[in-house]
Design a protein around this nucleic acid. Structure first.
Lengths: 233, 233
DNA sequence: CGATTCTTTGACACCTATCAATCTTAGTGG
DNA sequence: CCACTAAGATTGATAGGTGTCAAAGAATCG
């Protein structure tokens, strides 16, 4: 790996659990790669040969059914960990939604390193537990929320997440931002169709809760109303 | 705890990662409790004071929305681990669906023990990773499957799970079994209403794929057809 | 520009939730 | 042992929300 010292996620990724010298050891078995939007780095069903930290960008975790439908089961952001260490096959594909940078390790090397560094494992464990909670929260979301609630929640989440990207110091939700995803992807994330997403955006626009000046630009005009639409979560 | 030697889940729960002497140490900080059907042992939002292994029975993990709807986000079986160690608040309630037996630890004691036993943490980590995969699989399920697919899958899952309960050695799916759940609970698990569940069961019965001799008894008459209904997963 | 891709919009059908009534079962007390 | 009751389950009628299909409208890229 190039230089952990200047790494954007140095203090947020699992590496934060390590001492400087341990970090140097870890850096020796990893390397940073750039990937393009749309690239799939891990395939569902493979026993993926790699694991990685997300340094920059946004990626989707997805599973598909035998009849071709696809559901996005998670979205990961910088500092999140991807891949399935310790020898089980990956249950989902990982595909980048935007251009991205990853700090990757071969699974074998990572497994070995983790074995010798319980602190790292502990950190990974607490993260995984949180991730599990998030997944279950999402379950609630997809299982019981109406299309309008889903779209509203999605916009709010984006507004929060994107602000972290632009300005880590002051995570104030943005009122205007560009979606890094197309309608197709939004629909897959929310478990809806593109048409329904489109119609819901229209409805929010008609009611002056948001504006959609460009195809991918969102401007939140009435945040309270949007939160109300989301079902207050 | 009473006696790990005779414990039903000794070889399947996280304890399986420990040596006999370590196990004895762990047993000193835990104890076995019986709980009744319907009892809630962990409440959503609390920073639950306990964690536990499920020894016997079936419990649900659930989250509820501000407007009172409830979604079951997971079901746990013997040998599964419940609770949220390492100081975060629990994102969901844990309620027993049947009478059950748990092997409980105070969170503080468990956290301390885990710190000194990386093997235990490692085991917990791999389990949590698997659990995460399961949750994401379920997400696909709730997000994209029709009512008939959900009910069919549910019956198949039950047929598998219940056979493990009755005969650990030979996990052959049962063709006739009693559901430990009422319609309300099934509906919550599947993200449907009780009426829809009822109608789907009727439909399967009409087509001679299953029989429902008693309110809670299911008899699978055409397993292939049922698997076909489930969308083959 | 022309072509391709993405998005919006419309009409329609279908699935599931909702509401309401009936039927069944289990539990209770006379 | 038999009403009686309350809870659970089934069934029916209806309405509403989404998906589907089809077409038209923007935007992007060569």
């Amino acid at each position: 790996m190039d230089n952990c010292e200047t790494c954007l996620v140095r203090n947020r990724a699992i590496c934060s659990a390590l001492e400087p010298d341990e970090l140097r050891d870890l850096s020796r078995i990893g390397r940073t790669i750039g990937i393009e939007k749309g690239e799939t780095v891990i395939w569902e069903g493979d026993d993926a040969p790699i694991v990685a930290n997300v340094v920059e960008g946004m990626l989707q975790l997805s599973t598909s059914t035998s009849d071709g439908r696809e559901q996005i089961v998670g979205v990961v952001y910088p500092s999140d960990f991807i891949g399935r260490p310790f020898g089980a096959t990956s249950g989902n594909s990982v595909t980048s939604l935007t251009d991205a940078r990853l700090c990757v390790f071969t699974r074998a090397a990572f497994d070995r390193f983790a074995q010798d560094h319980p602190k790292l494992e502990h950190e990974l464990l607490t993260r995984t537990l949180s991730e599990l909670d998030r997944a279950r929260q999402w379950l609630l979301f997809v299982g019981q929320r109406s299309a309008s609630e889903r779209v509203a929640s999605f916009l709010l989440e984006m507004s929060r997440k994107l602000s972290r990207e632009t300005c880590i110091a002051a995570p104030v939700p943005l009122d205007r931002f560009d979606l890094p995803l197309g309608r197709r992807q939004i629909a897959d994330i929310l478990g809806l169709t593109i048409e329904t997403v489109s119609r819901q955006l229209r409805r929010l626009r008609d009611r002056k809760i948001i504006d959609v000046p460009g195809r991918r630009t969102i401007e939140i005009q009435d945040r309270n109303a949007l939160e109300h639409e989301s079902g207050r979560d």
